[in-house]
């Protein structure tokens, strides 16, 4: 999927501001606060809403001219309720599969299989009006998968779920992307969720692209170790000793941050030996994991950690 200068102007609100974006296969998390343009982007990609400006291709089809071809190969889980209460999940998924062009017999087989995958058992034969939110989300996911799409767009699939159901849904999303081999674009305003399940993360803010990269780059690219030492004037002595050994070190709160990327020696050994030589107690030595939240902090230009890698701030 690729967009070039994609813009959507709702009159008073500019939902997307000339967005350039490229999303490959795998699971892509689309993160943003409410109103950041996530849902609008999905609707434009489906060809449901015409873009005010710019172009986009989905699965090699242009959104402006090839809408039906895109919609035949894409599954969509909308954010809001979309299930008729007086129909059973089984009948509904069969019908929706047929609406994507599957013959009746094939639609029945697919519906049974997909409902099994999402974990709707006997309750699939009951009218959906009596379903819990978790079951409804599963039924919505099942209809999005019914026609074996090449790409599914999941708009806030974990919205309104309790923690257990949320875990289950995230597990399903992960299976769709990894085991089923279907590309996934999943939106959420909860960053921690996407951190775990997605291969790529795209951050939108106010209709603009804040950042797009692999999830592991988000999380592990700092190359910084956190060290905590105990003893008389421990921090200052440790900083002095490590700096002397040629390792960039700076205090952060009660701990030290050590740039492990520099220097040819194994920094872990160096830290251990230094602490031992100085007679200090080495309390903690860990990799400095960052969270996607930090990207937001960087993006808003507010709190930037002193340890922040200069590579992080890619936007402007």
């Amino acid at each position: 999927m690729r967009t070039q200068g994609l813009t959507k102007d709702y009159g008073p609100v500019l939902a997307l501001d000339s967005l350039d974006l490229e999303i490959g296969p795998g699971i892509t998390g689309l993160v943003g606060a409410n109103g950041a343009g996530k849902s609008t982007l999905l609707k434009i990609l489906l060809g449901l809403v015409p873009a005010t400006g710019g172009r986009a291709q989905v699965l090699g089809h242009d959104i402006a001219s090839d809408g039906p071809a895109i919609r035949a190969a894409v599954g969509y889980l909308p954010e809001h309720d979309c299930l008729p209460p007086d129909v059973s999940a089984s009948d509904f998924v069969v019908h929706m599969a047929m609406m994507s062009g599957l013959p009746r017999v094939a639609a029945r087989e697919r519906a049974a299989e997909v409902l099994r995958h999402v974990g709707l058992a006997e309750e699939r034969y009951r009218p959906m009006g009596g379903y819990s939110t978790g079951m409804k989300q599963k039924a919505k996911l099942a209809q999005a998968l019914a026609h074996d799409p090449r790409l599914v767009l999941l708009d806030e699939p974990t919205n309104g779920l309790d923690p257990a159901a949320r875990e289950e849904m995230l597990g399903l999303v992960q299976r769709i992307g990894r085991d089923f081999g279907i590309a996934v674009i999943v939106t959420s305003h909860l960053l921690g969720e996407l951190e775990r399940v997605s291969d790529h993360v795209v951050v939108l803010d106010g209709g603009r692209l804040l950042r797009a990269s692999r999830t592991d780059e988000f999380l592990d690219a700092t190359g910084v170790l956190l060290v905590e030492v105990l003893g008389d004037d421990a921090q200052a002595r440790m900083v002095a000793a490590l700096s002397l050994a040629g390792v960039t070190t700076a205090p952060r709160g009660a701990m030290l941050t050590v740039d492990a990327a520099a220097g040819e020696r194994d920094v872990h050994d160096l830290i251990r030996d230094t602490a031992s030589d100085l007679g200090l107690g080495l309390v903690r030595l860990q990799v400095d994991h960052r969270h996607i939240e930090d990207v937001f902090a960087d993006g808003s230009g507010a709190v930037t950690q002193p340890s922040a890698d200069p590579r992080e701030v890619t936007h402007d």
Binding site: P68, P78, C82, L83, M99
Partner: peptide
Amino acid sequence: SRDLRHGTISLYLARPLP
């Protein structure tokens, strides 16, 4: 009314039929 009331219309519109 049913499809409009329950939002099912968006699922139909997300499928190939215009």
